[in-house]
Design a protein around this nucleic acid. Structure first.
Length: 285
DNA sequence: TTCAATCGGGGCAGATGCCG
DNA sequence: CGGCATCTGCCCCGATTGAA
């Protein structure tokens, strides 16, 4: 129990990440009348969402009374203070975050150092999410799993913030990509991920709902290469990478989708002007 | 000398690219 | 979209090289 609060509950992450946005801790509390924190500075991100009552949040040149539905964010290194109202002190939930990528996550939902506030009318759902984050740290015997669970709920929280802020988020591009463009992107992605397996252009075209000739033409327009050439390029690039390691030519051939090491060798020679073993020797010399 | 790894040539069936 | 020319992928067989 925290003596400054009439109600207080917290969960703490024992296994935080350095880069990915990670929940450090999460809590819920109702401070006593006039309770004040700051002016001070944190080295992590801290989000508060007010459930009821009111209080004053100050950072930089900003001074804002926050009530139910308001969320304010404290950025690392920013001087801040916040104080519960003397007659109707706020009841709030909070989450501390760290990770190099966290600022980007905030900017994606329209929250920046200059604009660290947002408001949502209905906080029922978000309260439940806050609670799930908190409980993530109170159930498991495995700190890493707790952290993963909390991260998942934290991202859902950001989704809710983004929805609340959608009126100020950048609009979608005026011109949405043509359906075929998106299908080609999917095909490229598919090839990039599945290059080590047998990929049939007919099957891929059929899956995407196009005639193979149509897909090939569109593919070439977008990439400058036919699907088969593109697949070969991906395979050869990967093979070059693997030749820097210790796998045999046969193993590399199989790893990049060739059942026949000889055929792989022929293709590699065609693409690079060298046999796989010559290329490997060159890498090692 | 043996054996494994790699490479080269040739042939064939099926897949692919291109054009009308 | 269909047809045809070309290419790909795979299978032979045999040669070369280097390590054990």
């Amino acid at each position: 129990m925290n003596p400054d609060h009439s109600h207080f509950s917290i969960g703490i992450n024992l296994s935080p990440e350095d880069h990915d946005p990670t929940v450090l801790f999460s809590g819920e509390g109702k401070p006593i009348h006039g309770h004040k924190i700051g002016p001070s500075v944190h080295d992590f991100f801290l989000i508060h969402t007010v459930l009821d009552g009111e209080g004053l949040f100050q950072t930089g040149g900003l001074s804002q009374v926050c009530r139910a539905g308001d969320t304010f964010v404290i950025f690392p290194g920013s001087l801040f203070s916040y104080q519960a109202d003397r007659t109707t002190p706020w009841h709030y939930v909070w989450i501390g975050l760290q990770g190099e990528a966290t600022a980007k996550l905030f900017s994606e939902i329209g929250i920046t150092r200059d604009k660290p506030l947002l408001h949502m009318e209905d906080i029922t759902e978000i309260c439940a999410v806050y609670e799930r984050v908190r409980k993530s740290f109170q159930q498991s015997a495995y700190p890493r799993l707790e952290s993963l669970e909390a991260s998942g709920w934290m991202r859902l929280l950001f989704h809710h913030f983004g929805i609340a802020n959608r009126s100020i988020l950048p609009a979608y591009p005026q011109q949405l990509p043509e359906v075929i463009d998106r299908q080609i992107d999917q095909a490229i992605r598919w090839i990039t991920l599945q290059f080590h397996q047998h990929i049939s252009i007919v099957q891929m075209a059929s899956t995407l709902g196009y005639h193979r000739a149509h897909l090939s033409k569109a593919f070439k327009q977008k990439t400058g290469l036919s699907p088969k050439q593109y697949l070969m390029k991906v395979r050869m690039d990967k093979a070059k990478e693997l030749l820097g390691g210790t796998l045999t030519i046969d193993q590399i051939s199989s790893s990049v989708g060739f059942n026949d090491a000889l055929y792989f060798s022929k293709q590699f020679h065609k693409w690079s002007g060298k046999s796989p073993s010559d290329y490997r020797n060159l890498l090692r010399s």
